[in-house]
Nucleic acid binder design. Structure first.
Lengths: 362, 362
DNA sequence: CCTGCCTGATTAATCGTTTAAGCAGGATAA
DNA sequence: TTATCCTGCTTAAACGATTAATCAGGCAGG
């Protein structure tokens, strides 16, 4: 069947120069013994004919596809673009391609997705696991991006330290009454962030934690979190585990007539796209994704490369020694010194609008 | 070189049953002539041995890798998750993998990204082009997702009709004074959306268009857009070409003390993640990404499949007949009937805070 | 002069699958 | 009876690269 074959292969070059295909291979890969002049001629001819090696054939012969898998818990996650971009970039500059797989938040689907990648014989995989998931030994190099608390070969931002940055920032601005906002206490990432915050708050600080999923289980998705109420009760700082939650807090408070950052400060995490364009722009803590991605990818490549020479007994586990990458705080407009006229402002905040309960998502 | 070879291949099955490898291949693919009983036996043995076909070998032989490329203008685009998820899903259920490539907003990089995908011998590509880019004939099936105004084999949401939905919604609520917000007039998508809006606005409507990139070129990224000023001038409806801009408008107005939707309505596009959780939740127009992705992928597969039997003269162009998928409006809390006490409210709006110019992004 | 070594190439096997071509034997048709 | 067809399988040649093994020749050392 005459499928469109790529015209120029090694034999074509070999034929044109009257040498053998093996010599061409050796010349281009620099492996065997070929005279320098011939190497030059072959290189030139290859360029002339527009030769592009068949990665497929190479993969079949060498058992290495030059492709990494990227497994994500939920592609719809707003952090996904950053991760994907960083991984793709790191992989591309190492000459690798990236195959994506969405585990759709589901646990079984995650296994299936991983299986599909295995069938495609990826050389390694970067996995951002669903929380509560443990990645089994796959017989394939794996790097996990999650939280340092995750067991396994994990690379991640130092979420705990990030939390500390938030606390130090807010405490430094004079805040003593904190509302911490997370989505789900099962998430290692969120626990670390919130734990880190708490660890740097003064002993006498007043701390209250809101778990959004718990609130929504009662009042429905998108429901109001009763934040204005917290203002009345004297809280002045809202630290969210995520810019999405920070945004939610910002709009809920703004809507209730609370002035940010005069009456309250808000800090988020991840520097998601909107954080810099909303008004006021959101103070946030950013993870250095490109560094994380580079560590993950190069750890992967390390195992892949060393796997060929008989080290196969490693089996493909043990990727990166636990590595945590420091986070950086980006101070924007939602955080400011606690206002000395707190009493009056708190009073003023009592003239709040009633916020209707959020409607369901479509 | 003892790379980790997969243990079970066709010959293993053939050997175990005392038949030839070709027969195993025929049995599993259902192509040649094999007796039904033997087919069963082979299937059973394959399952027993945990046989997984080598896609690499198949690719080498058939010239088809079973992989589609996905090229994106900027992975950091907030719409990207939706697109990637939909494409991955459509491709996966057709048995295809998805290789991603980020063109980093750059025009040259887009070409490079495409080239890398070609080297990996993807069977086809879905391209979301940078605006202003025209996709050249690649000698590989291509489906473009952009706007019906884009020349080429385009599948897309019917952005024009989406714009009409917005206009009808707002006009139906009594609005007559519109601020339209876009980022860049060069974008086909945004032009279509805004064009569609205008096309359904009454003759006597007052319309003003803000191009964000132009504003930011003067006042810096993240700058205030002066929307509260528009409220004072009697505008009551803000229609953004994008939920990101809608969010920006929402926060800027809220910050200025404007009550949404009492004093003004806001509508966006794309139903991005935050739209349903901010307060008030954003009325938006959603594109049916899964339908779009399915059309793109199946168009691609159509060309790929028909390419084998001698139709190679098509050369791999001409993918989908121009296809536009209708959009749907999701009415949430940012849009409401225009308030009859407009005068007083407009007056009240004069007690606005001054908004400091946005700071630079980090 | 013979042996051994080094250089610079070639030969051929291999990766795992697909698929055109061939072949043996039984049934069918002429 | 002989030619023909069909069925169910096997043989073998690809696909395009890699790589171990081999080989021819030149040159040095004993």
């Amino acid at each position: 069947m005459a499928v469109v074959r790529q015209s120029t292969n090694m034999s074509a070059i070999a034929l044109a120069l009257g040498v053998s295909a093996a010599t061409v291979s050796n010349a281009l890969s620099g492996k065997g013994r070929v005279s320098p002049e011939l190497v030059d001629k072959i290189r030139a001819k290859a360029a002339e004919l527009g030769y592009v090696p068949s990665l497929t054939a190479r993969a079949l012969r060498t058992g290495r596809t030059g492709v990494l898998g990227l497994v994500l818990p939920d592609i719809a996650n707003p952090l996904f673009p950053q991760i994907a971009q960083a991984i793709e970039n790191a992989a591309a500059s190492a000459g690798y391609g990236v195959l994506i797989a969405d585990s759709r938040g589901n646990n079984n689907t995650q296994t299936l997705a991983i299986q599909r990648l295995m069938e495609r014989q990826v050389d390694g995989m970067v996995i951002v696991p669903r929380f509560g998931t443990r990645i089994a030994d796959l017989g394939c190099p794996v790097a996990v991006i999650d939280s340092p608390s995750t067991p396994g070969n994990t690379v991640s931002a130092d979420h705990w330290q990030g939390g500390q940055l938030v606390a130090e920032h807010l405490v430094g601005l004079g805040h003593r009454n904190f509302v911490l906002i997370g989505a789900n206490p099962q998430s290692n990432v969120q626990n670390d962030r919130i734990g880190g915050m708490k660890s740097r708050m003064p002993k006498d600080a007043r701390i209250e934690v809101i778990w959004i999923e718990k609130a929504e289980a009662l009042a429905g998705p998108g429901c109001a979190l009763g934040l204005a109420d917290r203002i009345e009760r004297g809280f002045t700082a809202f630290a969210a585990s995520n810019d999405l939650h920070a945004l939610r807090a910002l709009t809920e408070l703004q809507r209730a007539g609370v002035r940010i950052p005069d009456q309250a400060s808000i800090v988020g995490f991840d520097d998601l796209v909107w954080s810099s364009v909303v008004s006021p722009s959101i103070t946030t803590v950013r993870q250095n994704m490109s560094v994380i991605a580079e560590i993950a990818v190069s750890a992967l490549l390390g195992v892949i490369d060393q796997e060929s020479p008989e080290t196969a007994d490693v089996g493909g586990m043990a990727v990166a020694q636990r590595d945590r990458v420091p986070m950086t705080l980006i101070a924007r407009q939602t955080s400011a010194a606690v206002n000395p006229h707190h009493e009056t402002l708190s009073l003023h905040a009592r003239t709040l609008q009633k916020i209707p309960a959020g409607e369901l998502k479509s």
